[in-house]
Design a protein around this nucleic acid. Structure first.
Lengths: 168, 168
DNA sequence: ATGATGTTGAGACTGAGTCTCAGGTGCGGA
DNA sequence: TCCGCACCTGAGACTCAGTCTCAACATCAT
């Protein structure tokens, strides 16, 4: 899959610019992230690697994610839960998220007018924005049709449900 | 200060509607929250109570915050850090936040046009929103004038800096 | 006074993430 | 080719925010 190779090259460029190396571990993490996951949690990634019998420690997963975020290949997002989620960036533009509190699905959207409005607000407040984070929680169409009730804002279903956590 | 008494009454009403009681501990927490804090962290509140020699356990602080959130007197917000912050709601309308990554200050704003635009997006995606959360990170005017550099998005200064954490 | 129900504090526990450190890896230069 | 050094890794201890448990306490209606 040439697309993934391109991401790996981009990561390597980023690393070598700061005297860091593209190791076996980092390569397999990038490969995993860009091949199967979209929105994922750090521990979920760790678990997947374990499943595939690729031995990578928790520390390396976190360290690599930090590098990927710095390199711009991966974005760190809040989706209404305590901890972070990550998503890969494939050169596509910025977007925000609608998160279904019933089934955990995530819908992305990008609305230039909304973005512009935010810039206007910042200008009005003499604030220099670097970054923003918007999640809208609610119920998606298919859950709504099933009559799902919205969960209360502080009780949101886990996104990466599938990933049974196993430590050690 | 009569305003605080009004909030306490509102909380009591909420509690008694579900057969719960307004205890001494709960009262003093509400008093503390509504008198001095605006955006605060749970542990910061615990620390303040300790400073004032009001003995309240960690568990009670968290339990009371949960009740306050449910009652609508307090809102739980993400301000770009791992953990939650809380803010009291004084009958004022919904707002979002500009968070300065240099000095940690928080500017609130409420922009009906922005809110409306979000509703439009949800309608377009057939999504039923219940709640949303927008933080814009960046540098505030006074920090900008001091030539402060924006921190990277994943390294944000603590909002409640003052509160030295001391456990136990 | 009794019992039912609700509340509390202490401290054990959890889950996500960070840090440390000894050992491993790999590349540039002699 | 070999060496040295900077970089990288895994294991596990640690931290921090938040939750849970449980025994003791408070309150209220009967």
């Amino acid at each position: 899959m040439p697309a993934i190779e391109r991401e790996i090259t981009r990561f390597q460029d980023f690393l070598s610019r700061q005297g860091q190396k593209l190791t076996q571990e980092r390569t397999s993490l990038v490969r995993e992230i860009f091949s199967t996951h979209y929105h994922f949690e750090a521990d979920e990634l760790l678990f997947k690697m374990k499943q595939k019998s690729v031995k990578i420690s928790r520390a390396t997963v976190y360290r690599t994610l930090e590098l990927l975020v710095k390199s711009g290949l991966v974005r760190r997002v809040h989706l209404g839960e305590e901890h972070y989620h990550y998503e890969h960036v494939r050169g596509d533009s910025h977007h925000d998220h609608l998160v279904c509190t019933a089934c955990g699905s995530v819908i992305e959207f990008n609305d230039p007018e909304l973005e512009q409005r935010q810039l206007d607000i910042c200008a009005r407040k003499k604030f220099t924005p670097t970054f923003h984070n918007l999640q809208i929680l609610g119920v998606c169409d298919s859950c709504h049709r099933k009559g799902e009730q919205p969960a209360s804002p502080d009780r949101v279903m886990t996104i990466g449900e599938g990933a049974m956590k196993l430590r050690k």
